[in-house]
C-alpha cells in the first residue's frame, strides 16, 4: 500500500514528536527525578500501608468483637442498682453466708428499721421488769 502525502506527513510528524518528547524526558534534571521518586515512594507506602491495614482488619475483627463482648458483660454485671450497690453485691447479699458490714448496715435503711422493732420489744420488757423497783438514786 502506497502512502499518500498526508499519511507520510503524519507519520513523519508522529516520529518527530515522539523523538523530541523522548529527548525531553531523557533530559529531566536530577531535582525533578528526585521529586518524582519521592512521590512514587509515598504512593508505594500508601499501597503497603493499606495492605497491612487490610490484614489487621481481617485478623483482629473477631478478637475485637470478643473483647467488646467481654467488656459489655463486665459492665452489665457491675451496673449499679437502685440502692446504689452493684447488682452482683445485691444479688449475693440475700444469702445467709454473707455478713453485711457496718457501713452496709448504715447505708441500708430497711435493716435499720428491723433492728429498731427488735429493740422496742426489749425496751418494753425492761420497763415491765423494772417498774416496781427504786433505783436508790434519789
Amino acid at each position: 500500500m502506497r502512502l499518500q502525502p498526508d499519511d507520510r506527513d503524519d507519520a513523519e510528524l508522529e516520529r518527530h514528536a515522539r523523538n523530541v518528547f523522548q529527548a525531553s524526558v531523557d533530559e529531566l534534571d536530577a531535582a525533578t527525578l528526585s521529586r518524582l521518586n519521592r512521590s512514587r515512594q509515598q504512593a508505594l507506602a500508601v499501597a503497603e500501608g493499606r495492605s497491612r491495614t487490610g490484614w489487621r482488619w481481617t485478623v483482629w475483627t473477631p478478637v475485637g468483637a470478643l473483647a467488646a463482648g467481654v467488656l459489655a458483660a463486665v459492665l452489665l454485671l457491675n451496673l449499679p442498682t437502685e440502692t446504689g450497690a452493684p447488682a452482683q453485691v445485691a444479688a449475693t447479699a440475700t444469702s445467709a453466708d454473707v455478713q453485711p458490714g457496718p457501713l452496709e448496715l448504715l447505708v441500708a435503711g430497711e435493716d435499720l428499721d428491723l433492728a429498731a422493732e427488735a429493740d422496742l420489744e426489749f425496751y418494753a420488757w425492761v420497763e415491765l421488769e423494772t417498774a416496781g423497783y427504786d433505783d436508790g438514786v434519789g
Binding site: 518528547f21 529531566l28 518524582l36 512521590s39 512514587r40 504512593a43 508505594l44 499501597a47 503497603e48
Partner: peptide, 18 residues
Amino acid sequence: QVRELDRFLAGVERRAFR
C-alpha cells in the same frame, strides 16, 4: 505486587510528568 507497582510507576512517571 508492590514491586510490580513500583516498576509500573517508575516506567510512567517521567513521561507523565512531561
